[in-house]
Structure formats: structure tokens, C-alpha cells
Design a protein around this nucleic acid. Structure first.
Lengths: 209, 209
DNA sequence: GCATAGTTTCACGCGTTTTTGAAACCAGTG
DNA sequence: CACTGGTTTCAAAAACGCGTGAAACTATGC
């Protein structure tokens, strides 16, 4: 929902000469014909960008990934730079970050100086990878921490069995249970996503046994 | 994954030697004798603080909530301030933020100048509330955005039915399906949590059937 | 009412994160 | 080989979010 309107004057930085930039700066390029970022692409990349932020990633990771995903075929860094109005450096860093997460792959085409990039096309592969590497790790840490806390609490309780200690013990146990449950859920999710990307419409929760 | 090292770090997550560690003087107050924050409380509140950050909240929201939750009974702002080493302003803002999220409730005791605060004691109520207010809202927005994008794309496709448009259309549809699925999952989660906080250990995904 | 303890609000400063622009780098090419 | 077009790295700048401290405010007690 913000900044890339300042892109107006930055345009023309790349192409050969920019004699017409004086006028071009007035035109509102985003929806129009210039860098050819389609309206649909703008909407989706911004949306995903926002979701990515919610998920703790950078907005531009979402935007770049989206363009690659929507494009289907690999794109060069320059195209991305142009369409998203980002600096070459930013594109490069973003792409390498996306690569680290395994959601984007570099494509070599020999005899071509450009590098091309391609998005992981299976959404579920992507999601389960992130869940595994990030959420799960975090939850496991939390579990350990809660166990430690319980242990620490025991040391207190031994020398003084206050009601405060007793209440606290129960609460921490509650958190621990929750965290373990979360781990189980994540594992199930990850596992299912790995085996079968089409289970999704059928999921449900075990109310009846 | 960042700044809380001023207080933490040396504290040995597992085999905490607590109070008599040589560098306790440097590691300072949080664990030591002043405000009587127990080791177990420190561990848990830091952990939850970290998780909260991962979830897109502020660390101190997690820390404050944790103390209230562990305490069982309501606490005054001053106690929190002391135990967490935060300014009065920070405590106040954090508490009102937590109230906005409905996970902390202010308790009036007439004839007492202090305000007291109490944490929502049902973890699932809390979680489902956040899921409903935040995740779900976000997903719904995304769904709408994707629909808009499809519509915008149609407008393009009409005048030029390029393969780029066709490919894109399919991809957006994919995202839309995923988002709808996410909404369904969230709804199920929220619903179940509301009716019955003990379903958790029994959840599973519909492989059979 | 007035004084006072407690709470809330808010402008500011600080530390962190993100982006930029430019320099170093690299691989194909004449 | 030196050149060219492209990519990556990096330090500096800008943007951002958070907590502080002090001032404004509110509710009790005198």
C-alpha cells in the first residue's frame, strides 16, 4: 500500500538515452503501457508482498517471487528491475534470498549473458519448506524452553512450595502441551504436503473419531 | 532473532546455574534479586516474546502477557514494570494493545487506585481470536485481491489473448484456490477452538475418506 | 475543592532494517 | 586479452519501529 510512486523520476535510468524522461515523469506509469507490469500482476504481487510481510519476510521478496510465479517462464533480473522499479542491487539481494529459501531457482542459458530466474511452481512445496525450516524450528525451541522453565521452577518449588509456584507450574505445562500440539500439527501438515499436494480440499479435524 | 541480548544470552538456556554466576554482575538485573522475576518466568516470557515477534507482534506484548498468564491472578502495572524493567509508558501502551486484542482484561477494584490486569486464561480462546481477527481478515483480503486480479486480467485478455495471459490466469487461479483453502482451514480451526478447547490432541487430516 | 498517586498520551531519539548507488567482479566476445 | 554487458557485494543513507521521559490527564483521599 505504499511506495513506489516516487519511481516517477527514477525511470530511464537504464535504457540507452533518456531524452524523453522529462515528460515521462509526469505520466503515471504503473497502470499504463511503459514497463509493462500488468494491472493483474501489480495487484497480485502487492497482495503477496503484504502477506509475506505478515509472515515475516520482506515485501520485495513477495513481489519478486510473484512476478516469477505468474510469469511461468524464467525472467531476467533486468525485467524484474524494470517492472518493480527496484535497484539492481535490491533485485540481486532479493533473488539470492529467495534462492536461500529454495523458492526460486537460477536458470543458466549458455551463450546468454543474462541469468534467468524461475519460481518454484508448486505452492505446497514452497509452503511446507518454510513451515519446516522456520515455524517448526521455532516451536521446537519453545518446547525446549518450556521444559527448562519447568525444571527451573522445580528448583524453586523444592525450597518453597508456594501457591504461586504451583499455579505457575500448571500454566507452563499448558503452554508446553500447546507447543507440542503445534509441533505435531506442523509435522502432519509438512508431511502431507510432501506426499500429496492435492489433499488440501479434503482436510478436516478429527471431531468424530 | 535480534536485540534482546542485553538481558538474556549468558543465562544458559538449560542448565541454569542461576544466581551465583560470576558474571551475574554484568548480566544484571533481570534475573537477579530486585524485582523478583523468577528464572522460570524469565525463560517463558522471553520465549513467548520471541514467538510473538515471529507472529508479527511486539516482543513486549508477549512478555507482559506471559507474566500475567503465569501469575494466574491479576497484577498491577507497577509490578509488571518492575519485573520487566520497562518504563511506565511502555507498560501502559503494551497493556492497552493487549486489551485491544482481547487477550488481557483490566480489573477494577474500587477503593484501590491501582488498575489490575488479568490475562485471558484460555489459550485457545486467545489464539482463535487472533486467527479470526487477523489471519482471517488478511486472507479474505487476499482472496478479494486475487479475484480482482483475475477480472483485470480478463480485460487484457479480451483485446489480446496472449499465452502470457493464459498462463497467468491459471496461476492466479491457483493462488485463489489456495487462499480459499486457507480461509476454510482457519474457519474450521476457529470454530473448533470455540466449541471445544480439548479437540487438539485429536486433530488430524483427512487422508482416508 | 485541592492535592496526590497512578495512568495515559505523545514528541523525540536511538538502534535496526532496508534500499540505494557505486565499485568490484565475472563470463562470454571481438 | 582487453572489452562489454551484466551481476554481486558493500558501505552509506534513508526509513522505520520501539521505548523513553515528561507532560497531561484522571480518579481517589483529605
Amino acid at each position: 500500500m505504499e511506495g513506489r510512486e516516487r519511481a516517477a523520476e527514477a525511470s530511464g535510468a537504464d535504457s540507452a538515452e533518456d531524452e524523453l524522461s522529462a515528460d515521462a515523469s509526469i505520466v503515471l506509469e504503473v497502470g499504463s503501457g511503459d514497463g509493462d507490469l500488468w494491472e493483474s500482476e501489480r495487484i497480485v504481487s502487492d497482495t503477496i508482498g503484504r502477506l509475506m510481510v505478515l509472515w515475516g519476510f520482506k515485501r520485495n521478496m513477495g513481489r519478486v517471487w510473484t512476478l516469477l510465479y505468474l510469469s511461468g517462464e524464467p525472467l531476467g533480473a533486468d525485467v524484474l528491475r524494470e517492472r518493480l522499479q527496484l535497484s539492481a542491487g535490491a533485485i540481486s539481494m532479493t533473488l539470492s534470498e529467495l534462492s536461500r529459501w529454495g523458492v526460486v531457482r537460477k536458470v543458466w542459458r549458455q551463450g546468454d549473458r543474462h541469468d534467468y530466474y524461475q519460481a518454484e511452481s508448486s505452492l505446497w512445496k514452497m509452503i511446507s519448506r518454510v513451515l519446516r525450516e522456520r515455524e517448526r524450528a521455532e516451536v521446537v525451541l519453545a518446547i525446549e524452553a518450556f521444559e527448562d522453565a519447568l525444571a527451573a521452577l522445580e528448583r524453586y518449588s523444592e525450597r518453597e512450595a508456594t501457591p504461586r509456584a504451583r499455579a505457575q507450574r500448571e500454566r507452563i505445562q499448558q503452554l508446553l502441551d500447546l507447543a507440542r500440539m503445534g509441533r505435531t500439527m506442523l509435522d502432519a501438515l509438512i508431511d502431507h504436503a510432501r506426499m500429496d499436494a492435492s489433499w488440501l480440499p479434503r482436510f478436516r479435524f478429527g471431531r468424530g473419531e
